[in-house]
Amino acid sequence: MSDRIDVRKTYKLYVGGAFPRSESGYTYEVTDAKGAFVANAALASRKDARDAVVAARKAFGPWSGRTAYNRAQVLYRVAEVLEDRRPQFVQAVVQSEGLSASKAERVVDESVDRLVWYAGWADKITQVVGGANPVAGPFFNLTTPEATGVVAVLAPERSSLLGLVTAIAPVVVTGNTAVVVSSYSRPLAAVTLAEVLATSDVPGGVVNVLTGSAATLGPWLASHMDVNALDLLGTAGQTELARDLEVAAADNLKRVRRAPAAEPDFTREPGLDTMTDFLELKTVWHPMGV
C-alpha cells in the first residue's frame, strides 16, 4: 500500500458553473497546517476575477428571479450534499486548520447546520425585514427587500469551511450572486465546496470561487463597476488593505461590509445583518380607489 504513488491534485477555479484553470496559468502550492504539500491550487488573476463577475452578473437575474422557496430548496440541497461528503470536508479541515478529527467533525457539522439555517431564511427574510407602511393617504404601500446584485466576498483566511459557508450562504440565499475569493492559505474546503455546488442544484455563476490572494484580487473586485457589494470579512486585521478596498469600492458606491478587527467566532449564530447588508429595500406605492 505504502508503495503507491499519490495522484496529486491540481485544483481549478469555479466560474460560471465550470472548472477552468487560471487564465494566467499560475498555480500555487497548498500545504497543510504543518507545512506539508497537499495540492496545487489555481492562482486566480484579475482576468479570472473579471470573468467571474461576468458569470455572476449573468446568473443574477435568473437566480434573484427564482422563488424564495426554490432558493431555499437549492441551499438545503447543498447542505445535503455537504453532509454526504462529510469525510472529505473533515479531512480538508484537518489538513487546512490543523484541527483534531473530532474538532473538524464539529466544524463540518456546524457548517452543514449553518447552511440549513440560512436555507430556511430564503422565504422568511422578506416578512421579517419588509412590511406594509401605513401612509397618511389612500395608498397601498409596501416595502420589500431585494438582492443587491453581484457581491464580491473575501472569505475568511482562517476559518476555511465554517467561515466560508457563513460568508457565502447569506449572500446567495436572498438572491445575490457571489464572487468568492477563498482563503489563500487554506483553500481546500473552498475547492471542495465548489465541487459540491457543481453537483448540487446551484445554477452556474451563482457562486464563483477563486483561489488566490485577497490582496491581489481584492482591488480589482473592489473597483469593478459591475460589482454591487463587497464583503471584507477576509481582511480582518488588515486595516490598510481594508481601507484601500473600501475607498476603491466608493467608485460605484458598493455596499461594503467591513471586516471586524479580528476574525470572528463563526460558531456563534449569525445575525440578520449578514443578509440585510446585501439587500436593498424597495418601496412600492399604489393608489387605492375604485
Binding site: N141, N252, R255
Partner: peptide, 30 residues
C-alpha cells in the same frame, strides 16, 4: 428604491426612501 405606480413623488414619514446603486444606501423614513 421607490416605485410609484399610478402616482409619483409621494412621501410619507412611514415610508422608507432611498436608492439602489449610485443613488446611495440606507433608508430614511419608516
Amino acid at each position: 428604491g421607490v416605485v410609484w405606480a399610478n402616482t409619483f413623488n409621494k412621501f410619507d414619514p412611514t415610508s422608507p426612501f432611498g436608492g439602489y446603486q449610485e443613488s446611495g444606501y440606507g433608508r430614511e423614513g419608516g
